[in-house]
Amino acid sequence: MNVSTASARVPEGWREVNRAMWDERVPVHVAGSFYDLDGFRTRRDDLRDFEKAEVGDVTGKSLLHLQCHIGTDTLSWIHHGAARVVGLDFSAPAVEAARALAADLGHGPERAAFVTGDVYDAAETVPEPSYDIVYTGLGALCWLPDIRRWAETAASLVKPGGFLYLAEFHPFTEALDDATGTRIVRDYFSRGAQVWDEPGTYADQDAVTVNNRSVEWQHTLGDVVSALAAAGLRIEFLHEHDVSLFPRFDNFEVRDGYHRFPEDHPRIPLIYSLKAAKS
């Protein structure tokens, strides 16, 4: 059972708590069926259809993936034609797993580089000063307390004429009941730290784990868009999608490869995506 508390302050040691949680789960993710790394070595693509369509042709472009975890999404962009990808994550075991996967696929560090570092310090950590595309995938922003600092850092890494692409779970879902998603039971505008104590992982709920505490933050859609605009990026689109990658609500069913509400259930946004360009 999830246990959470909300606090207006940023808990001391939050980064270390989260890193310990993620470090422990990397071997579970590498070995498990959720990421299916053996299958990935064959299919070579874990990106969602809407991501590929919205990002467009990446042939010959450089791409930076912030909070890349074990690198499957990062490496997928190479297989769609990116000239060079760089993945950054604060978990050293995750970065080592990503490097090993890249090597298995025949990509050396000149084509696919993975570095360990905090996302807020990315400008001082990644090998190049800027990239054609800065990409952030699903489930990343909730681990960051300061969304404006994130936006400023991400924007600083976009080349002139390039863009940031973000796909993220929609914050509205966090306000709804977990059973049916039909009742508002939590405060959408809550910005305090949420401290969770939960064993296992989304990739294997039965996994035996020790480091089960984590600290997360909720960022409204307005907060994210406003932060990117304030950082000097121009929002080209904001799209909302009625699909998810995991059974967020108890009544979800799988159709067309996505988790969805039943067909007779009112649709709500479950994921959002946006593109923000630099002049």
Rank of each mutant, 00 (worst) to 15 (best):
M1L: 13
A8T: 15
P11D: 09
E12I: 03
W14T: 07
E16V: 12
E16R: 13
E16P: 00
E16F: 09
V17W: 02
V17A: 09
W22Y: 05
E24S: 10
R25G: 04
V28E: 00
V28I: 15
V30I: 10
A31I: 03
Y35E: 06
Y35P: 05
Y35V: 04
D36Q: 09
G39E: 06
L47Q: 06
A53M: 07
D57P: 06
C68Q: 03
T72W: 11
T74K: 12
T74Q: 00
L75G: 03
W77N: 03
I78S: 01
H80V: 12
A82T: 05
A82K: 04
R84W: 07
R84L: 08
V86I: 11
L88P: 08
D89W: 03
E96G: 05
A100K: 15
A102R: 02
A102Y: 00
L105Q: 02
E110A: 13
E110W: 02
A112D: 01
A112F: 06
A123N: 00
P127M: 12
P127I: 13
P127E: 08
E128Y: 10
I133A: 07
I133W: 04
V134C: 07
L138M: 14
G139K: 12
G139R: 11
D146R: 14
T153I: 01
A155Y: 03
L164M: 03
L164W: 08
L166Q: 00
F169H: 13
H170S: 05
F172M: 11
F172H: 13
T173W: 10
L176M: 08
G181A: 08
T182F: 10
I184M: 00
R186G: 02
A193I: 04
A193N: 04
P199V: 13
P199C: 12
P199K: 09
G200T: 09
T201D: 11
T201A: 13
T201P: 07
Q205K: 13
T209G: 01
V210T: 15
E216H: 14
L221R: 10
D223H: 12
V225L: 12
V225S: 01
S226A: 14
L233P: 01
I235E: 01
H239W: 13
H239D: 00
D242Q: 14
V243I: 15
F246N: 00
D250T: 05
E253D: 04
R260V: 00
P266C: 11
I268G: 07
P269E: 02
Y272E: 04
S273F: 04
A277W: 06
K278T: 01
